[in-house]
């Protein structure tokens, strides 16, 4: 059976620089695919191509076998939820959804029911009569997503759907997306949030420089890491001085954030050879003895973030790609 979404050899250049380069992607109904990659990797461009907003320089995009760029029927099968809160702030939640229902081509008599169903799905019935501009960021995000779903499209594109929302709103959005998947909707979600991707995705695809550098079922990709050593991260109480920094590097750690250092490889002993891997408590004691202001040692099984680093950061770096202007 042909996939719901099929991108084949997709290429697009912006001002002479490739944004997407020979990208292949397929998505089946009831499947959630998370797109991961640094800024400028081409995630949003890919979504705009699938939504029919851009013309590919090479390759094809097909939704249910049709070209969304030229066929309104194909676009009707795609619900695009952009990163921005793309709603009318002076209209209420229900009015916004009603307008999007009309623009999605729903017949007049079916719109009221569709709006009610969407308010229930997104769990926003309580704010149905409120003006969008007066809602909190979390509610606005939920309405933003609901507006993309009102036409009950079989394929939904979500560009960073939980950006800037609190934990409760994020949980509500995830619950909504899981309900959609159960109903058979295919979801393509671009995110920088590894935890979100781990919770939601059936498959992940890592993009860099306009190419998918690794792609597959999440469980299978994570299983490949299970045999390896656990990830270790140090949390420092203050910024290390030069001597402490040298000690950290000798122990096999590299800076990840201002006060967080991540283990990147085996440490070196005084003879500059590989050092014996110490357990957490021993490592903490040794580093403190060397004057490193360590406050915490975190140990965890490798997850999606480790996969991301492995897929994107350990390979040859490509030139940063440009996103087409909006």
């Amino acid at each position: 059976m042909a996939p719901l979404l099929a991108c084949t050899g997709l290429g697009l250049a912006y001002r002479g620089r490739p944004v997407l380069d020979g990208l292949d992607l397929a998505l089946d109904p009831g499947e959630i695919l998370a797109l991961l990659g640094p800024n400028g990797a081409g995630k949003t461009t890919l979504m705009r191509l699938v939504a029919g907003r851009l013309v590919p320089g090479a390759g094809t995009v097909r939704v249910s076998g049709r070209d969304p760029r030229t066929e309104a029927d194909a676009r009707r099968r795609v619900g695009w939820v952009p990163q921005e809160i793309a709603l009318w702030p002076r209209l209420s939640v229900a009015e916004n959804l009603g307008v999007f229902a009309s623009l999605a081509g729903l017949p007049r008599r079916g719109r009221r029911g569709a709006v009610a169903a969407m308010l229930a799905l997104a769990d926003i019935e309580a704010v149905g009569a409120s003006l969008v501009g007066q809602l909190s960021g979390g509610y606005q995000r939920r309405v933003n997503i609901a507006a993309g779903l009102i036409g009950q499209p079989p394929l939904v594109l979500l560009d960073e759907p939980t950006q800037g929302v609190d934990r409760a709103a994020r949980a509500a959005i995830h619950a909504m997306l899981r309900r959609l998947r159960r109903a058979g909707t295919a979801i393509l979600v671009a995110t920088h949030d590894f935890a979100e991707a781990e919770r939601l995705a059936d498959r992940v695809a890592f993009l860099r420089g306009g190419r998918i550098v690794r792609e597959g079922p999440l469980a299978a990709l994570l299983a490949g890491l299970a045999a390896g050593p656990p990830e270790r991260e140090l949390v420092l109480a203050e910024i290390p001085d030069d001597a402490a920094e040298r000690a950290l590097r000798r122990a096999g750690f590299a800076p990840d954030a201002e006060l967080a250092w991540r283990e990147t490889g085996p440490g070196r002993d005084d003879g500059a050879g590989p050092a014996q891997r110490l357990d957490g408590a021993a490592l903490l004691g040794r580093l403190r003895a060397e004057g490193v202001p360590v406050s915490e040692v975190r140990v965890r099984a490798p997850g999606l973030e480790a996969l991301y680093r492995d897929a994107l950061e350990t390979r040859a770096r490509a030139a940063p790609a440009l996103e087409p202007a909006r």
Binding site: R48, V78, W80, P82, L103, A104, R326
Partner: peptide
């Protein structure tokens, strides 16, 4: 500027309607 036009353009009727 708010991204609404982009979203509406992706609808079946496009921005023309």
């Amino acid at each position: 500027e708010s991204g609404l036009a982009d979203r509406l353009s992706a609808g079946p009727g496009g921005l023309g309607v």
